[in-house]
Simulated scan of single mutants.
Amino acid sequence: MTKVHRTIKEVKELIGTLSDSDPILKELKQDDRKGVQKLLIQRDRERMKQEKEKEEFDILTRYESELRQQGFTHIAGIDEVGRGPLAGPVVTAAVILPSDFYLAGLNDSKKLSEAKRDEYYEYIQKHAISIGIGMVHAEEIDSINIYQATKKAMNEAIVELPVQPDYLLIDAMKIQSPYPSQSIIKGDAKSISIAAASIIAKVTRDRMMKEYALKYPGYAFEKNAGYGTKDHLIGLEQLGVTPLHRKSFAPVKEILHTGH
């Protein structure tokens, strides 16, 4: 058999397309050029990374897989963002994913970079069966408390789903609902549907807070999303309380009482 002489550039373009049983791969392993050996090492690393991501993803889908085996088809993951900030709404998302959904690296939205979250947000928007958003604003949070506001927003997100669910997987909370449900502690790191809802809720809220930053400059909402950072607290001291602020939350409450 004639040995084919490929340039390093040709090998680089070819190597990612080869299966483990491909005879060309066997031939490349006997090629003593450093550049080829380096490309083989990179290929092995990439394969291992992909296998690890697939294993992690399979772990993330175990709740959904078990429920599908029980006959449920439209499993909605539900998560919230914005329980802790001093300003802005609490936002929830309900997301129903198809059974063949795959997105490597999807887990807790707080651990991802903003660019990665935006990328995943677009992918989920494109591939989800159904997405619903719920939100409760500052005035109502002050009126009914943040815990009740979060539950209300979650129920709103379920109602807003264009395709209704037949089962709910909820991050940490228990809500009254006509659907069977399960509450999962740290659900955004354990369920793919909740992880997807976490991304949708966080990106939705972060984008809203950036819009609010234009209307209410001086609080750094575009950077802190309403959380009580140093910039935000300085803004509160100097500019006072806006309609976005939760008046029942310290230190907003203190500023109102002291009149600063």
Rank of each mutant, 00 (worst) to 15 (best):
S183Q: 09
E156I: 13
V159N: 09
I200K: 06
I146H: 09
P162N: 10
M1Y: 12
K52D: 02
I144M: 14
K215W: 02
E139Y: 11
I234N: 05
E10Y: 10
V95I: 08
A201W: 12
K111A: 07
E237G: 07
E46N: 10
L256C: 04
Q125L: 15
L103F: 07
E160T: 02
S109C: 06
T242M: 11
D20G: 00
A213R: 11
F221T: 03
K29W: 07
A220R: 14
K223N: 13
N145A: 05
A196W: 05
I124L: 05
A94K: 09
S130A: 11
A87H: 09
N145D: 15
K186E: 10
E140Q: 14
A104P: 15
V163Q: 14
I234W: 00
I129P: 09
I129M: 11
R45M: 12
H245A: 02
I192G: 04
H260N: 13
R43G: 01
L60P: 01
M48P: 00
Q182P: 00
I185M: 10
A189V: 02
L39H: 05
Y120W: 05
E119Q: 15
R43H: 04
G259C: 11
H232M: 11
A250E: 13
A153F: 10
Q164I: 09
L103R: 12
R33D: 08
T204V: 03
G218V: 06
Q37I: 05
R43S: 00
A225W: 06
I170K: 01
V4W: 07
Y123N: 00
I194D: 02
V159F: 12
V11F: 10
R83H: 07
K215Q: 15
S143T: 14
S191M: 02
E10N: 06
Y227D: 03
G77D: 04
K12G: 00
L97F: 10
G35V: 08
K202R: 14
S99G: 00
I184V: 13
I133P: 07
E156Q: 15
G105W: 06
A149Q: 06
V241Q: 10
D20R: 13
Q50S: 12
S193L: 04
G226D: 04
A153N: 05
E237K: 15
D231T: 03
M154C: 06
P251R: 12
G187I: 02
K223W: 01
E114N: 08
Q176D: 14
D20W: 08
A104W: 08
T17K: 15
L236Y: 03
K210V: 07
R207C: 00
G226T: 09
G259Q: 11
S181T: 04
I199W: 10
E211V: 12
G82D: 02
D79C: 01
D58S: 12
A197W: 01
D118G: 06
H260M: 11
I146C: 09
R246K: 13
Q164P: 15
E114S: 13
L233I: 14
M173N: 08
P23V: 04
S193C: 13
A149G: 07
K52T: 12
S21M: 03
Q164N: 04
L14A: 03
I199T: 08
L244K: 10
Q50C: 01
L18P: 13
D79I: 02
S109T: 03
I184D: 01
K126F: 03
I234M: 01
T17Q: 13
L236F: 04
P23L: 03
G77F: 03
G218C: 08
A189R: 14
Y123S: 00
E254Q: 14
V81T: 13
Q69K: 15
Y167S: 02
